[in-house]
Design a protein around this nucleic acid. Structure first.
Lengths: 312, 312
DNA sequence: GTCGCTTACGGTTATCGTAACGATC
DNA sequence: GATCGTTACGATAACCGTAAGCGAC
């Protein structure tokens, strides 16, 4: 029953065109309408507002005082509406929006700079919130809907395809490394020789270290002798190169940069950890268009991340 | 052919109601629509914006990121539109607007204070521009569309009913006056006695003075001997009372105020000028709703101005 | 008579309501 | 099975176009 009293912006658009054109015939042509259609448009507006917008001066229509004010107001209102349309459409395709990203340190180092740069190039209105942390904390934040996407290793925990949707981006191999001139390379590599040297590793809670320790144990050795612990991924290559310690890091770090060039992989099947790197999101959470765009960019750039995990 | 892309504010209103209500059934009841109508309203908006506004969470609709932004924008836009509606409607009935008034000095003194006070009481948003001047100048300004209304005497010049529309408000009588104790009252009043005394009159261009001079001339007398000239209406009563000069002013000034009480009419048919006071407007000019309201108020208060022009 | 706007009338499009359907709890 | 949203379809209302009408120049 209740009819909603509201200005029709289509009629308002016609009205502005009529006022600009100065007569109905010209406005009708510009709008692709006919003269009578515009006559009735004015009539609708005037009935709705209970106010004359035009008056007759000779055989010409001129704006009344109210019409002049209405014209100014409608210009503004139509402009606002158009701006809102663009804004919402941008949000809809991910050109605008906000993405809360969680990332493991390695992923943050090797994938995010490229991806976020590309995202911001394509979608300048997108804002990002990046949290670097350990994988278990990040996944928990994802579950609590405090993150939209997590960049990191795809583990069994995140393999629950009912709860999580994951996008694989690269395979990564963590390998034992030492400086090029390390004495371990002077004789054949065995588990025994690895067990004989000291290591620099990340903190005990980190997945790669746990995997290495578990591997030592399952092969009948005590865990690697840890002489130094660090959480700094960027510091590791230089530490290894200069301290003659062994370490266990992504193969990606080899040969890259001044410090990376000093490193050499200790090729041993038993201490090569293969893992998938990718993006995880929660299925029950809203997949923001901007987040979707970032995932699409990542998948398109997948090739840029490959090449470190393949068998040698 | 060209279809105008524009947000439908009716749909936007539905959308806000849906978002507020939290579900379609409740919103439908509040809006007096049915559930399917609202389903399709959302569909129209989403198709138009090419953006999801709601997503399904269980059997419930929840806003997307874009939907949340759209909701905020629509609240604002709808509010603005409603405000504009009110503003234009006010302009339409004269509750808002601007009136450029011209007024003769006498009219300004006796009619405008009451009328403008009443107008502003009824229509606080109306603004006024008042010019006090001589009638011929005012009428010229009216013709040039620099004034909307002129308050003043209705003369032959403004009696052209094709060009002007006039509203008679009061009859006014200009009479010869002197102070109560003036010697002229000691003997019978004749034209000869009037011609024998000195006068204080307004400037030669003013209609009343011209009428008086013409009256003297047509009766065979030289014009009244003018000893003093003034354009100040408010000063005249005191001048007359204190200088023993004769003058020619509206009967309205007699008995009003301290100075007016000292004045006495010189009752002579030959020197009684009857005239109409009222409002004049140009037919070819736009009759602003606010101006129309002022005229309506004036006509309703007509009785307040009567009583000075009647025969005694 | 021409020009500019309005009115009248018939056709098209869009929105709405009723009813049936589908999914979630 | 009850609730909430969607789909299908017929009815209604809104808008547009064609054609005729009316007043100003």
């Amino acid at each position: 029953m209740g009819k909603i009293a509201m200005i029709d912006l289509r009629d308002a658009t016609y009205f502005v065109a009529i006022a600009d054109a100065g007569n109905l015939a010209l406005a009708a042509e510009k709008l692709g309408r006919t003269q009578p259609a515009l006559t009735k448009c004015i009539r609708r507006l005037e009935d709705d507002l209970r106010t004359e917008l035009f008056r007759h001066e000779g055989r010409r229509l001129v704006l009344t005082e109210a019409g002049i004010v209405f014209l100014a107001r409608m210009r503004s209102l139509i402009g606002h509406a158009a701006e809102i349309r663009r804004e919402i459409a941008d949000l809809g395709v991910g050109i605008a929006g906000h993405i809360r990203i969680g990332s493991a340190a390695t992923a943050a180092e090797y994938m995010l700079p490229l991806l976020t740069a590309e995202l911001i190039r394509q979608a300048p209105a997108v804002t990002l919130d990046l949290t670097v942390g350990m994988n278990d904390v990040l996944v928990q934040a994802l579950i609590e809907k405090n993150l939209d996407l997590v960049f990191g290793p795809l583990t069994e925990a995140t393999g629950d395809t009912d709860r999580f949707e994951s996008f694989s981006l690269a395979t990564d191999a963590a390998v034992a490394v030492a400086s090029r001139d390390h004495p371990i390379f002077d004789s054949p590599i065995t588990m025994e020789s690895l067990a004989a040297h000291k290591w620099v590793l990340s903190r005990p809670a980190v997945a790669t270290r746990q995997w290495l320790q578990e591997r030592f144990r399952s092969l009948g050795f005590d865990g690697p002798q840890v002489q130094m612990e660090t959480s700094s991924i960027s510091l590791l290559p230089r530490l290894i190169a200069e301290t003659k310690l062994l370490s266990f890091i992504s193969r990606r770090n080899l040969g890259a940069g001044a410090a990376g060039a000093q490193l050499k992989e200790i090729p041993l099947e038993e201490t090569t950890m293969l893992r998938e790197f990718g993006i995880i999101r929660l299925r029950s959470a809203y997949f923001t268009p901007a987040a979707r765009l970032l995932v699409e960019i990542a998948e398109a750039r997948k090739a840029d991340f490959a090449g470190a995990g393949e068998a040698r």
